[in-house]
Design a protein around this nucleic acid. Structure first.
Length: 381
RNA sequence: UCCAGCUUAGCUCAGUUGGCAGAGCAGGCGACUGUUAAUCGCCGGGUCCCAGGUUCGAGUCCUGGAGCUGGAG
């Protein structure tokens, strides 16, 4: 469809991203992901900005919550406005005005979540666009070409994400194809862009370990765990993570894709996960739920009608320091006012950022278990 | 004063040849995990304006009344 964005450089420069491990506490890790758009202290949580925007928030507001890295979406931006438009306008950083580091998801998850709209083959996903029905082919090479045009710091390989309760044959087929696509994605990569591989295998520990080994043999700049929180019970994911995450190549960053609840994060960090993304803080915010010390508040609940308290006394987000009462936020939400979505999104992202920042400090100070126990107790639910 | 239409859930309204009273919104509660999501699900709710009549059975048909709206005078 179009020429490569960059010609291969004769002598590849330094890797576009580099993971630096600063300290460990048991299996939990604290480090820094060095990128051309800043250093990302890890463990880190990435807000999801599917359409080159974290819904309801400006790029400055996202940064103000403490997020140093965000994830955007290849499939959605490919369809609209089109990767050529984004490239023409200077790439995703310039286009979206997000100053931190960026990763683009490859579209593999849309193949899962929009399964009814596409057909899987060895050459990728034959999509029917959810916008206009247009037929599109997302091959490993096309996913890399689009991501290179979008210009994030990190591209994700195209992968096959099997549903959570798949049997071993499907899980094996998915991970084997993902490995073949891993080679194709690396061959098609833009040398200026980091690429992460995606480990599949569902809840089967032996498959996960086998796939981790296969992908670790390849020159990926990071290792992601995909195919979690796709329908299986959370405890099942936790058990699998406990056996798999600590054995991942320690020299590379460990990214758990699409996860999750505060509890999921605390558990995954304990097993050595460094990076997360999830729609939960922002989607739930827009659906009226606030994450607070002690659990979650459904802001539309009648009990908040006359509640003068802010969402969380111990929170330093714009909504809480601004003094916006639960009663006012409830009113805004019930009235359908956009400000409710904005303030709750700011609050929830700040909650997630503080959760992982607290974990990082605790790891570096050798007291993660105590942090873990305290936070898990606070969560209650 | 006459004529016509209307009166059913908090609100706006459906309700077939007479056969177990409904929807949307509002309200209450819940869900949400690499976003097709300011989305989705569940629930509470009734003197069907009133009084008679016909009928096995009336929100529905008949008679009378009340209120509201519009028109005429």
């Amino acid at each position: 469809m179009s020429a490569p964005v960059h010609s291969a450089s004769p002598s590849p420069g330094p890797s576009p991203v580099r993971y630096e491990l600063l300290g460990k506490d048991a299996d939990a890790r604290a480090g820094i992901l060095h990128t051309r758009h800043g250093e990302v202290p890890t463990p880190a949580f990435m807000p999801v900005g599917t359409q080159a925007t974290v819904k309801a928030l400006s790029a400055e507001e996202v940064a103000s919550t403490g997020a140093r890295m965000a994830i955007m979406n290849t499939y959605h931006l490919w369809l609209r406005p089109g990767e050529a438009v984004v490239r023409e306008l200077g790439g995703l950083h310039e286009f979206s005005r997000f100053r931190g580091a960026l990763v683009t998801d490859s579209g593999g998850f849309q193949a899962f979540s929009l399964a009814a709209r596409n057909k899987l083959s060895e050459d990728g996903f034959a999509f029917s666009s959810h916008l206009d029905g247009k037929k599109l082919q997302l091959s490993p090479e096309e996913a890399m070409r689009v991501q290179a045009a979008l210009g994030a710091d990190v591209a994700m390989q195209l992968d096959v994400c099997a549903p959570g309760m798949s049997g071993r044959p499907e899980l094996i087929a998915a991970l084997e194809r993902t490995t073949r696509w891993a080679h194709r994605c690396l061959a098609a990569r833009d040398p200026e862009q980091a690429v992460f591989g995606i480990i599949q295998g569902g809840s089967e520990v032996d498959l996960r370990l086998r796939h981790a080994e296969e992908l670790s043999a390849l020159p990926f700049d990071g290792l992601a765990l995909g195919g979690f929180s796709v329908g299986e019970p959370p405890e099942q994911m936790h058990r699998t993570l406990a056996q798999v995450a600590p054995r991942l190549d320690p020299s590379r960053i460990h990214y758990l894709m699409g996860v999750g609840t505060p509890r999921d994060l605390l558990i995954a960090i304990r097993h050595g996960v460094d990076l997360f993304d999830c729609v939960m803080p922002t989607r739930n915010a827009r659906n009226g739920q606030a994450f607070v010390t002690g659990g979650r508040l459904v802001i539309r609940n009648q009990r908040f009608r006359l509640d003068r308290a802010v969402l969380d006394e111990s929170c330093d987000c714009a909504a809480c320091t601004g003094g916006y009462s639960r009663a006012y936020l409830r009113h805004l939400y019930m009235a359908g006012e956009i400000l409710a979505h904005r303030l709750l999104s700011l609050h929830n992202l700040r909650y997630y950022a503080r959760l992982v920042a607290g974990a990082r400090t605790a790891i570096l100070e050798g007291r993660y278990e105590s942090y873990f126990d305290t936070k898990m107790r606070e969560l209650g639910d």
